[in-house]
Design a protein around this nucleic acid. Structure first.
Lengths: 340, 340
DNA sequence: TTATTTCATTTAAACGATTAAACAAAAGAA
DNA sequence: TTCTTTTGTTTAATCGTTTAAATGAAATAA
């Protein structure tokens, strides 16, 4: 019930000045301050369960020990994993995390950005949506440290970006399909201009073309809305009409929808189609065959993002993270009986 | 590059007082203030892209427009969904969310609590871990509005709790199994003393006993560590030795591990065992059969939690949310050939 | 012409902490 | 005994904003 106690309350109760209380509780001038007075102050502070008001401290120091994190959607496993690791690393360094979801909407992104700036966060980790890059100016104006996560933009110095080699990731996927004997792959991606997904696409297209010669690689794009239905249509077309022997799902959500279709229509994996997904999901374990997927080093990336915010030296580094193909049953080689 | 501009900067530049700037920018005393002066101030503020310092505002008003959310783990789908809805509702009311994960560790919980209190959040939404209830005293001490989410504690007035009827949820599950002709169910739960999970257990045990007469219901408990292996052992035992015809997975994580075992060992669902899971997951869609599950009204619960924080009237309400059994193929009735 | 309103703006305290600088009293050096 | 140091504490400014109260000038009323 008791309201919060301030240094002033303690000072008044003991008939000393606020400054003295501050010095004692912060362990300053320990050699000058009377031991008994100090003891009295400490005791009363404990008794009243004194907690410094972080707001007041922040006003003086203009440090809030808070990092702002803007992602697409916290309920998406990819981002919630990142949030998890960012929180972990931030905590380790004595920082907290405020988060906001922009749902790929640049206006929403800008509005959250403004709020976080007004809140005086000490740094920002941003999964900038398409069309949101122009609002980064606002961050620069107030010279707030920031990094862009997952996404990339041409105007942005590489040292400000924490992401993976998307081109290379797709290259590895295509090569893996080849090695396992799958020669006709369809990739399914979101329709978007986001540069990192473009790179992922190019990695697929170019590597496929090289490997397959002239044949045009099969690349499908779906819109966010009606994703489920679109994917059903696409997969059935790819499998039944185009007779592909392998599918490459470009994102988490696409993978989920795609695997659901495969399960529902009893399309055998990998016998009828092999499957590779981008990003990890618990769910892959419960599909009839365990799923081969591209693993991003989320923990390392998150740590790097936080460290870039907090450490100017690390902020200068340019680093592209490499992904790892986790090979499971969904790309098992098919032994063709006729060749035996 | 330019540092942040304050009201003082604007005031100085125009040779007026800070108070006047404040009045103008907050639209106070509009009838008294000279229209031209007001215009000048507004113009310069816009020009300099003035953003009020929220920290300073908070210090004066002791309102931070921030809600603290403490959950077990943001990367767990259940909590990230809740975080999503809480953020959504909080935003709608002009609030932000800071979050912390306590990983079911009461000390960690207490430490996050302290930080949030020092940060002067306006309210707290807490998934209190076992043994963490004693730290709620700290929150009461500073008379901060709070609600406990998902969990329940005897000492706590029901109006402070936002959760579901766990007993009833299990009752419905058992009855559903009965109706579908499954008579020997094993439930798999976490080993815990958390009251809400106890209620879930009692709902299962009592309804089962009543339905089955004297036969002791099969109830397995697993430890958090080695969860995967334990569950494998348990399921194989339940299915092969005890010959159960149905499984009831008590939580998200148990369900995932359990379904993975069923998939790996090719245990047919629902032909060999029917399955019901607690809580929703994308993953259920990609299991060979769609999974019947207990759905919590997460959105409504999240909204209620936020509203309880922000509205003293709603804070008084006592409400237990009801779950909904989403029936899918994993509990399809088995037509026994021998009876035909 | 003097008193009263109205208008436009400023002063100053406050929120809760930090911190450089000032100060008074006691102790030590000359 | 006077001067200098040391010891222990206070004063006051500051961070950026809000807001009640004060102020002074112009307009209106008496």
């Amino acid at each position: 019930m008791s309201k919060k106690v301030s240094m002033k309350d303690i000072a008044t109760e003991l008939g000393v000045s606020v400054a003295l209380v501050s010095y004692v509780l912060n362990g300053k001038f320990t050699n000058r301050i009377n031991v008994e007075t100090a003891e009295k102050i400490r005791k009363l502070a404990k008794q009243h369960n004194y907690r410094p008001n972080q707001i007041a401290k922040s006003l003086k120091s203009s440090k809030t020990y808070t990092i702002g994190l803007i992602i697409a959607d916290i309920s998406n496993l990819f981002y919630s994993s990142i949030a998890h690791f960012i929180e972990e690393e931030a905590n380790k360094q004595g920082y907290n995390v405020v988060f906001g979801s922009a749902y790929e909407d640049p206006e929403r992104f800008a509005s959250i950005l403004d709020v976080f700036i007004a809140k005086q966060v000490d740094g920002l980790i941003l999964a900038v949506p398409e069309g949101g890059e122009k609002y980064l100016e606002r961050v620069k104006e107030v010279s707030l440290p920031f990094v862009v996560l997952d996404r990339e933009f041409a105007e942005l110095d590489r040292s400000m970006i924490v992401n993976i080699d998307n081109y290379g990731a797709s290259k590895v996927v295509v090569e893996h399909f080849q090695q396992q004997g799958f020669t006709k792959t369809a990739a399914i991606a979101l329709k978007t201009n986001l540069k990192h997904l473009q790179a992922r696409k190019e990695g697929f297209m170019e590597t496929s073309s090289q490997a397959l010669g002239l044949r045009e690689p099969l690349f499908y794009e779906v819109l966010e809305k009606d994703l489920e239905q679109e994917i059903e249509r696409i997969i059935l077309h790819a499998v039944q009409v185009e007779k592909v022997d392998s599918l490459y799902f470009f994102t988490n959500r696409i993978a989920m929808a795609g695997l659901a279709v495969l399960a529902r229509f009893d399309i055998a994996v990998p016998e009828q189609v092999a499957v590779v997904c981008f990003d990890e999901a618990d769910a892959y374990k419960i599909f009839k065959r365990e799923i081969t997927y591209v693993q991003q080093p989320l923990k390392e990336m998150s740590q790097m993002a936080v460290q870039k915010i907090l450490n100017p030296e690390i902020r200068k580094l340019k680093k592209i993270f490499q992904t790892k193909l986790i090979v499971k049953e969904s790309t098992n080689q098919i032994i063709d009986n006729e060749k035996l």
